[in-house]
Every structure is written in structure tokens, then in C-alpha cells.
Design a binder for these strands. Structure first.
Lengths: 129, 129
DNA sequence: CGGTATCCAAAAGGATACTG
DNA sequence: CAGTATCCTTTTGGATACCG
């Protein structure tokens, strides 16, 4: 499968790439993984993820809901209560994303080591010049 | 301007999320998947991905190289020739990313259907009000 | 509580010119 | 060819105020 096969036909980006970008977006990744645990209320989700603004969380949830990955259950009570959960489609995506996140966690030390080596090599080069 | 400056990522965020963001970044995803195929030269990679500026491709490759995911092989010839390939670490990451991309492709129709349903429901609601 | 609307700052990204 | 450097535009994201 070639990357260029996903590209748009001139103006818009191809749908495949767009969906992938929703799923791999900064907050999309975190929301999907968090919801694998269990359903969350809006504020609860915000606290669980941490350092996400109301605006970005709203935007992310709406995008994921529109793509059919997240189910939004707004209960008509006072005060309002809205629960978010994964659809079956969302669970599939979330599991892929979680696999990637787990890999990242397992291999973090290797990456950090590679970074140190890279930076040291760069510093040595700049001293030599 | 130093590399670490424009690469940003000053140690504000936890390393785990940071690595994940490099791997899932817009161009990072495309580069990793493309390099799963075989090593590529810079311009060759640029053509294969398409619609990526020189600047962004350079930036992405440097970030992935620093994280130890991509190997850069600059041959001291005229004209310059630089080959990029995946490291073992990079191959592991790329395979996870490719799995996610494949899922997206397989499930694209479901997502597009969900979107149509969402938009129609929203339009119906706005007409009713 | 769970949003929306608005404004503003910061970061990403593109175009162009230039270099070894 | 494979980049850097610079300038500029676009997008992203946060802060704040307000609403049902």
C-alpha cells in the first residue's frame, strides 16, 4: 500500500487520511484510550486526561462522535449529565491506538537513549567545527 | 536556530506522550509507512508522499532520526545522496501505525455512513427548531 | 454541568531564496 | 541533491465570558 494512494484528487484530502488524522490527533488518541476503560462524563474525562481545554475536548468528542467512534448520551436532567462511551467501531480504533501507545511506553527508554546519543553526536560535531 | 529549538518539545510534556505524538504526527505517519516498503532518498520520499514541503519532510525526518526510528545515511558524493531507512525500533513503530492505517481503510465506509447519519440528524434537528 | 462564542497568542506549515 | 534561512499565512489551542 503506497502512501500516495490515500491522497486527495486535487483539492480535498482523501477520506481515509482524514479519518486517520482524527484518530491519531493529539486529543483523539487520549480520549479513545481513556474510554476503553469505561464510559466517562465530560468533566470526568477532562480531569482524567488533564491539561485539555474545554474547547478542545468538546471539539475532539464531536469529531469522534460524527465519525461514529464515540457515543454521546445526554441525559435530560438538571444539572445536565452527558456520558461518553465507545461504539463498536470506536473500540476497534481505540484498541489499535492503545497498542501503539503501549509500544511507545515499552520502548520509551530506547527512544530516550537514542535521543541522548543523537544530541551528544550533534554537540560533538559542533565543538569540532 | 538550534535543532532542539524548532523541534520544540521542551520537556514540558511527559516523554511518553511526546514520542506518541512524533509517531502519530501528520507527516510522521506517512514517512513511517512509506519506509516500511524500502529505503528512500530524500526527494524520492518527497515525491512518494506528495504535497509535503521540503521543510516539513526535513523536520519530520530529523525528529524521527533523533528518536532512533529512522536511520539517515548520507553518502559523501557529488551530488549529495542521502538514504533514509527504518531502524529496528522504527520498524516496530511503523508496523503499529500501518495496522491502524489498514483498519481505517477497512472501516472507512462505516465511518462515512456514520457521518452521513450524524449530519442528517443534525440537519433534521435544525429544521425542527 | 456541559457546553457555545469570541478573541487572541502560539505553533504548524508553505513559498521562496540561498548554500555546500 | 539535500538541505538552511527567512518570511509569511493558516491552523491550532487556550482564556474568558456567557447560556440553557
Amino acid at each position: 500500500m503506497s502512501v500516495s494512494e490515500w491522497q486527495g484528487d486535487g483539492e480535498a484530502m482523501c477520506p481515509h487520511r482524514l479519518i486517520l488524522e482524527h484518530v491519531t490527533s493529539r486529543w483523539g488518541v487520549l480520549v479513545l484510550i481513556q474510554l476503553l476503560d469505561r464510559p466517562y462524563r465530560f468533566s470526568e474525562l477532562r480531569r482524567a486526561i488533564g491539561r485539555v481545554s474545554e474547547k478542545m475536548l468538546t471539539q475532539t468528542l464531536q469529531t469522534l462522535e460524527r465519525d461514529g467512534l464515540v457515543h454521546r448520551d445526554a441525559k435530560p436532567v438538571i444539572p445536565p449529565r452527558v456520558d461518553y462511551s465507545l461504539t463498536e467501531l470506536g473500540r476497534e480504533a481505540a484498541e489499535q491506538v492503545r497498542a501503539l501507545a503501549s509500544w511507545t511506553e515499552q520502548r520509551m527508554d530506547d527512544v530516550l537513549g537514542a535521543r541522548r546519543a543523537y544530541d551528544e553526536a550533534r554537540d560533538a560535531r559542533s565543538r569540532a567545527s
